[in-house]
């Protein structure tokens, strides 16, 4: 029989959980990444040091290690009772934030100095200068790399299956143990599910890119 129709509920649950994991981690990564990028260009040395440390640590740690650190380390430090799903969001969001930060920072570097100087010269504070003038222009160049990072994030969610999160990867483990369907067919359906997610992401970002290009 067809594994998809037989286990449609499992596939649907896995798919929806992967989508949810991707969206929530992406939100966390975008917010954190922007904040850390702001830290890295801030006039306050302590914030710059924090930003650099954050990026260096997270960018150079394998994601699986980070998952281990979050799922084993945090409870050991006394943070108990967190659902594995939310721990996965935390790990994926923090990890991806380091890359988002660098994409935004390279976008900031393409905005001419004169833009920030003009903003400061009319009395705007650092955060107004960044939020009103520099970031909106930086995003134009940062959007395509951020799109790639989001696709990478969607695929990285598969690692969560190793940590008791029921997403797409977990569907495969569960079905393999079961009734002896053709393993390649299972893989194919799972791959198609990921493709749907990544195609939607690249479509969204192409749309964003086009809209930003018009608005000028």
């Amino acid at each position: 029989m067809n594994v998809l129709t037989d286990h449609f509920a499992d596939f649907r649950e896995g798919f929806l959980n992967t989508v949810e994991l991707t969206v929530l981690s992406a939100l966390l990564a975008l917010v954190l990444g922007t904040l850390i990028a702001a830290f890295r260009v801030s006039p306050v040395p302590a914030l710059r040091v924090f930003g650099t440390t954050w990026v260096t640590l997270l960018r150079n740690t394998p994601l699986v290690l980070l998952f281990l650190a979050v799922t084993l380390g945090l409870p050991a430090l006394g943070l108990k009772g967190w659902d594995t799903f939310w721990l996965a969001v935390l790990a994926l969001g923090c990890y991806t934030s380091a890359f988002i930060c660098e994409a935004i920072r390279s976008g900031i570097n393409t905005v001419p100095m004169g833009q920030a100087e003009a903003a400061r010269s009319i009395g705007m504070t650092f955060s107004q200068t960044l939020g009103q003038v520099v970031l909106p222009q930086a995003l134009r160049t940062a959007i395509p790399p951020i799109g790639s990072l989001m696709i990478a994030l969607a695929k990285n969610t598969a690692i969560a299956s190793g940590f008791n999160v029921t997403e797409l990867g977990a569907v495969q483990q569960q079905l393999n143990a079961d009734e002896g369907y053709n393993i390649y067919v299972i893989f194919l359906w799972i791959a198609i599910c990921y493709l749907i997610i990544t195609f939607v992401i690249s479509g969204l970002f192409r749309l964003l890119e086009n809209r930003m290009a018009v608005a000028r």
Partner: peptide
Amino acid sequence: VGMVFQSFNLFAH
């Protein structure tokens, strides 16, 4: 203190 720059520096966006 108003400032006018050689390269205008109008907000491009």
